[in-house]
């Protein structure tokens, strides 16, 4: 039980350790998760369109203003709609998207367990 608690604390604390990274990295990480509206198959990070270049500058500005990653995503979501985010959050539109694979995994496991395996 003690071990379990310790484990939990480690998990909760560990995202903190990744905060002190360089600004550029943060910018890249964010723009990788934004979809470019000009070349619609690419992320803003990968794209070199005028729009994407400006958007990178905006991300830099927002980071300097001290906005968090989530706030920046939220900002672009209100400007351009949910489509711009490559990482769709868990909401009523995406319950099936996120949970169906997990459900399939669980059902698959149950089928294998029930029909094939004898414990002895």
């Amino acid at each position: 039980m003690k071990f379990f608690k310790f484990f939990l604390i480690v998990i909760i604390l560990f995202p903190l350790s990744s905060v002190n990274s360089e600004g550029n990295d943060k910018r890249n990480e964010i723009t990788k998760n934004l979809r470019c509206l000009i070349c619609q198959g690419q992320s803003v990070y990968d794209s070199d369109s005028e729009f994407a270049n400006s958007l990178k500058i905006v991300v830099d500005k927002k980071l300097q203003e001290g906005l968090s990653e989530d706030q920046i995503y939220e900002y672009f979501k209100t400007k351009y709609g949910e489509w711009i985010l490559y990482d769709p959050g868990l909401n009523k539109n995406t319950y099936i998207l996120w949970l169906l694979p997990i459900l399939i995994f669980l059902i698959g496991g149950a089928i294998i367990y029930k029909s094939f395996i004898v414990k002895k």
């Binding site: 979809r35 489509w83 985010l85 769709p88 995406t94």
Partner: peptide, 18 residues
């Protein structure tokens, strides 16, 4: 999602990685 509710979303690398 688009056909059923006309909502447009993107599913990209973060989804698959997670």
């Amino acid at each position: 999602l688009d056909v059923i509710s006309s909502q447009k979303i993107s599913v990209g690398p973060p989804f698959y990685h997670k």
